[in-house]
Design a protein around this nucleic acid. Structure first.
Lengths: 185, 185
DNA sequence: GTCTATAATTTGATAGAC
DNA sequence: GTCTATCAAATTATAGAC
């Protein structure tokens, strides 16, 4: 059994969005790839905003599934962090693309409101998870973890090399282990 | 004396690019804002790619000027880092926009080649500067500094709050001061 | 569910007058 | 340098047949 047409539409649109943002996917392009007419896409998703929300929602829900899985399978916070980093590494090395919500967050100002809210939700969910599952003590660590991973994807894409991402992943592990509890001046 | 038309074109296009990326600015929109016809813009910049390169180049050169200035005015690495962080804070709090090259790097795959290369140059220049002026000992720190600052802008934009950026800025300072020299397992 | 046909708008770009 | 006029292409979207 294969995917539904709606799923395939989301597949292709998501891929294009992760490459070039919200203004970089079109009904025509999607229709060419899957071999139907662009008018048919409107049957599944009446407007472009509707499709955009569906894409962001599926992406966030799938990501959340992985977060739940990690929490179930791994108890030790340091190893949970490694598994979390691996989610972003997968995006970079296998998909060779940005995190969808990272690509969208860079365009916050031009996103239709429903898509902006769904993108925001992705970041809130990730911060919540990091705060509870990895850094129960220091809330700022969740922020720098997510920020540096999103930035690392961006840098590895433009520099066309995995090294920036791996350096950040390595540093995050060190940050976790070595600076466990300190105070600022 | 006021700016030249070419400068004003770049001003507006840069602003739109920083809000929504490369596919988010158009000759028509620019022409409306500055009160000339879109055909006139082609006199200054024959193609959209030409304009895009000019925008990225001016942005990078201006940023580089600031980096040189910091190096001249401040000797202490920790204070240099504070001044560096302030460049990004300015982008967020005064312009209320992404770093131009951060917005473009997220769209690496769809950028015309000359724009991609100019964007890449921005990151290379920043890493070079951080490595020589702030972290002469540990090269990976430059990467996590730039990555987390770009990611912090992205997060503060989508979460619509300065807190993520300030948390990252605070953490970077702590990273600099407290984990000055350690080894990983 | 998918098609044809079409509308209305926007886009980057060019030719040539002034 | 800026204009008018125009173009070809791409965009989102709708109406209605099958």
């Amino acid at each position: 059994m294969t995917n539904s047409t709606a799923d395939r539409i989301i597949d292709i649109a998501e891929s294009q969005m992760r490459s070039g943002g919200y203004n970089s996917f079109s009904f025509r392009e999607i229709s060419k790839v899957i071999g139907i007419k662009s008018a048919s896409i409107h049957y599944h998703f009446p407007t472009k905003t509707d499709l955009g929300v569906a894409i962001a929602n599926r992406y966030t829900e799938r990501f959340l599934e992985q977060l739940v899985l990690i929490k179930q399978e791994v108890a030790e916070p340091g190893e949970r962090l490694q598994r979390y980093i691996a989610l972003f590494r997968y995006a970079l090395e296998k998909d060779q693309k940005m995190c969808l919500c990272g690509a969208l967050a860079s365009e916050t100002d031009i996103l239709p409101e429903p898509i902006r809210l769904e993108t925001k939700r992705f970041f809130e969910i990730n911060l919540d998870w990091l705060n509870t599952a990895v850094f129960p003590d220091a809330p700022e660590k969740a922020t720098i973890t997510l920020a540096s991973l999103e930035g690392a994807l961006m840098m590895s894409k433009i520099l066309d090399h995995f090294e920036p991402f791996e350096q950040v992943g390595h540093r995050l592990a060190a940050l976790f282990e070595l600076c466990s509890e300190e105070k600022a001046p």
